[in-house]
Amino acid sequence: MAECPGGSSARAAARPARRTAPRTADDAPPVVLRARGLRKRYGDLEAVAGIDFSVRRGECFGMLGPNGAGKSTTMRMIYRASPIDEGSLEILGLEAAGGHNDRAIKRRIGVVPQEDSLDQELTVRENLEVFARFYGLRGETGRARAEALLAFVKLRDKAEVRVGALSGGMRRRLMVARGLLSEPELLVLDEPTTGLDPQARQGLWERLRALRRGGTTLLLTTHYMDEAEQLCDRLVIMDRGRIVAEGAPRALIAAHLPPHVIELHMDTAGALPEAVAALGDAIERSELLSDRILLYLHDPDAVLSQLAHALPEAEVLVRRSTLEDVFLKLTGRRLEEG
């Protein structure tokens, strides 16, 4: 059994692996999805307030943002479960706005919606075989595809079990398998790991990496910054319907913040202590939170001893800057707060 089911591995073989052949501007893979001024309102609420982004073939593209940022609305417009109010959205060369290409677009993408929508009345295998018919795969072809996907998501020994008896991680993997029935060029996943325990998340990440190695373009949303850092080649950070930052995870951090953070945990973090102010230019940026102070800087070693001396009561932690810090800087809010 091949790592990846069916055609995606064939597609991967047809072109050089992205990671081994560093690309220049000229030989960059083609764009498979491009949004321009994309908008969607619900009554007075602008759920997606004019966003622009593009996804290239073979990459894993992430949308990071708190609850209510507009991630699902964007995904729903992409997989044609939601009409587009304004702007353009080109998917695999087809224009999605207006809805005239809905069927053609849906035939070529795979969808893993945010909410669990597995068929509770069917077994694991039946879930795949029944949905295979929606892609015109009948009889032996459908059964073979279902079997290959069961192997891919490691659910073969659960094949005859009713869906209700699966764990959360298994249900998600089955949702992914269902999304792969059409051997899609682009797989759209809306918060694929939300609510999963750490092991189940790792298991799912590993399958998604295998898919990407096979050449499938992945577009996923998440509100976990570690997930975005781990999986995504490029990402956008969304907040209140807008894109507030865009780029590769490390580049994004480098563009917005110094590489290191010193966290000072203390009980009385009301104002910046004089000791910190005294550090002067060494601190490039500081952030006051209710229970701690974040100091962004290039060279933590130089100031650590000074701080330990001046603020002996504070608990000090040194770490690298993260996407969450970028989000905090750009919006003044934490990702989990929503």
């Binding site: 849906k106 909410e115 929508s117 597995l118 068929d119 929606f134 029935l181």
Partner: peptide, 14 residues
């Protein structure tokens, strides 16, 4: 409740 139509509409179904 079962979101079955949501699942259908994630396929080429209209």
């Amino acid at each position: 409740f079962s979101r079955l139509y949501e699942a259908y509409l994630g396929t080429p179904a209209l």
